[in-house]
Simulated scan of single mutants.
Amino acid sequence: MATPIAGRRQFLGGLLAAGLMPKPTWADAGSPAFLSAAAKSDGNYVLCGIGADLSVRFELPLPARGHAAAAHPTRPEAVAFARRPGTFAVVIDCVTGAQKAMLTAVDGRHFYGHGAFSSDGSLLFTTENDYELGQGRIGVWDVAAGYKRIDEWASGGVGPHDIKRLPNTDTLVIANGGIDTHPDTGRIKLNIPTMAPNLTYIEEGAVIDIADLPAVLHKNSIRHLALGPDGQVAFGMQWQGDGPVETLAGIHQIGTPVRLLSAPADDVRDMDGYVGSIAFTADGQTVAITSPRGGLLQLYDAQTGHMTQSVAMPDVCGVATHQGTLTVSSGTGALRQMQGSEQSLAQQTNMQWDNHLIPI
């Protein structure tokens, strides 16, 4: 017997195929506030929609472990990306559960687990590695043509990981982590002594700005990004050097210098050199960073750049904002809403949540 959710999807799918209902919206997919990849207790991998009340609104199968996803800006459609160095991305209709397309990395490339849509949803941009040349690439995919690859651009650096589109623009910001890898050696990092991470801003394939870190931090791999309401970009880093590091996060805006976030040395050390995810609060006043290795959520004042709070949470990683509230996810299955250091809502699931919560 079909479950109620599966039956509803089949019913809606039939109506859509017959042209008997308006174009679907995210409400037809259960009004999720977030997307997240997860592993189930039976070992299968799924992409889930999570509601503002922390309930799981849908779970859709993935062929292997996922990392992040991209939500289409105008319809209930998502692209789920394989964990680095994966070579697949699955396009899913989140109403019917149908797989609409499968993106496969072209020869000599692998994906880095992230992507972003253009403002009108006509193009998808993917972060990729040209692993023979050791150079970053941005794949360009035509959505209307069934996600056909039509172009690629230089990412402006090595090891592009996260990619975001600045609010109300088609300007892309890319986190070039600086780390070179090759599928023959899996996740082994090949160029630590010569790393050079940066933030690169691209419009229609042209680099319009590059922000570099101070030379002493060249082993601080820029990995994940968050967008503020005024075009600020917060970035989280992962330290590849020996000994302590002074910071694991910063803020940048086009045309200005990088501002590094600061915390007492013990608090930086407790993050174990690793930021897994990062988010702005809706008002842009606070930056949240997580470390699953350190089991910590840390909050920073975006104006002063100083840490304001540190909250212990086992295996915490995903973090995102919805209607003024921070939501975090954990590999233990926990979902929590946070107002500062106070927990306002919690849900325990049977999912092992992967690294990211993607707001819709």
Rank of each mutant, 00 (worst) to 15 (best):
R8M: 13
F11D: 13
A154T: 02
L172M: 05
R149K: 14
T87G: 12
V258P: 01
V316N: 12
T332I: 06
Q253P: 07
G115A: 14
N129H: 12
F125V: 06
A33K: 06
V328K: 02
S36G: 10
R137P: 01
P214E: 09
V268R: 05
A234C: 05
D93A: 14
E203K: 15
V207L: 15
Q10M: 06
A80T: 07
M237F: 10
F280P: 11
P167C: 04
R57D: 06
D184Y: 13
G186P: 07
G241H: 02
L261V: 08
F58G: 07
A346C: 07
Q253E: 03
G157W: 07
A68M: 12
G331W: 08
M307L: 14
Q232V: 01
D53G: 02
Q352S: 03
V46M: 10
M21V: 11
T349H: 02
G318W: 08
K40Y: 02
W239G: 02
G236M: 09
T3F: 08
H67A: 11
E246G: 01
G121Q: 08
Y201C: 15
S155I: 01
P63V: 14
H72E: 13
M271A: 08
R137L: 12
R109S: 05
L297D: 02
S119R: 14
P73V: 11
G236R: 08
I192C: 05
L190E: 14
R9I: 04
A17Y: 00
A37R: 09
P183I: 15
V275M: 11
G66Q: 09
T325Y: 07
R109D: 00
P214Q: 12
K100L: 14
T332V: 00
P244W: 00
D53I: 03
M102N: 06
L123H: 07
A33F: 03
E132L: 15
R8C: 10
P160L: 13
L62I: 07
S310L: 01
T286W: 00
I278D: 01
A334N: 03
A101E: 05
G250L: 10
S330F: 11
A334I: 03
G177H: 13
I92N: 06
H182W: 06
A302F: 00
Q238P: 02
T256E: 10
G295L: 13
